[in-house]
Amino acid sequence: MRWDHLRLDAESGPEPGAAQPLIERGAVTRTIDTPEFRGMTFFEIRARTVVNKVPAASRVPFRWTINPYRGCSHACVYCFARKTHEYLDMDAGADFDSRIVVKVNAAERVRAELAAPRWRGEHIAMGTNVDCYQRAEGRYRLMPGVLAALRDAANPFSILTKGSLILRDLPLLQEAAARTEVGAAVSVGSVDTDLWKQVEPGTPPPRRRLEVCAALNDAGVGCGVLMGPVMPYLSDSPAQLEAAVRQIADAGATSVSAITLHLRPGAREWFLAWLREHRPDLVVPYARLYRGGAYAPRDYQEAISRRVRDLAAAYGIGGRARHRPAPAPPPARPHQLSLL
């Protein structure tokens, strides 16, 4: 899939039969010399469409998405969306982290597309490819216009984020929730701060994300937690899972679900390069675990999901607690393997 909706013509249009540019020739390219944006480049484009249909082969429970940005300054070493930057003739590594495409007309396109006669008011998911509340949103402020359009159309939507900037838009979320179904979730795969600094260097700390979850729920906007990804040998020990679920429960999350790390092309190469540098002891175990492709073995994925589900029930997430689990043993030491 070549993301044709991002191929924008030059003003005079291309020659018949010629390939259209991946980024429009009239795009504005900006570099901003402030500490939070140093080393980053922004490509400001006017997208043809912003409400995008998800390919049928995707393993996701939704059909439509809005992604105001391409690339992400969160710089998560495992991000599955890295491959999409190659469709823009950029690399899936450093370019994905630092060369961000900004759809500056996102709000006006959303409003127009939701008003089209063919639109049927289906649920729209946001933050499912790259984070719509990444650092760039503080400058470009695209989400207030997008949320206002969804609110005015009473169109159901959900947001997944690792950013704290979502709280800026809390009044809009409350207004939308009064008119339609609104869901929110924060992504917290682990509460290990040492691991966070290494694998998610551009994100707020896990504790701050859980504070966001609590604030959204206190304001009447239901917020759950996606424990994603759980990383084999790095964040999957019984003690690590129990610590994460306990803090998620303390934040008042409405739900918690786990997703195990998957390593699709693009993300796989970048993550394994990180592994060779920071955890060379895990290179061979990862090669064995993921020898079948992008996904860990099904029984391992199911074991993680079952353990998190049981912990969630024990801590009363989404209902009353059956019991509080006994303290788990301490996490495995860094040189030890912890594949459950």
Rank of each mutant, 00 (worst) to 15 (best):
L172Y: 08
S164R: 11
L289I: 00
G293D: 03
K83G: 08
S338L: 01
E113L: 04
T49M: 05
T193M: 05
A176R: 06
E36L: 06
S58N: 02
G13H: 07
A215L: 07
L234G: 04
V104H: 02
R288I: 07
V77E: 01
N105E: 12
V212M: 08
A10D: 13
A148R: 14
P331G: 08
A332Q: 09
L114I: 15
I32K: 10
P55S: 00
D169M: 09
S305I: 01
L339G: 03
L142R: 07
R264V: 09
C79Y: 00
G220T: 14
N52D: 06
A27S: 14
P61G: 10
S190C: 02
S73I: 03
A94N: 10
V51F: 03
V188R: 03
Q134H: 11
F42C: 11
D192A: 11
L340M: 13
V221I: 15
P229Y: 02
L263K: 03
A184N: 11
V110E: 04
N217S: 13
L226E: 07
L167C: 11
A244Y: 00
V102H: 05
P117R: 12
R120F: 06
S164H: 14
D89V: 14
A249S: 15
P297A: 02
F157M: 10
A149N: 10
D4K: 06
R288A: 06
I317L: 10
A294N: 12
M40I: 01
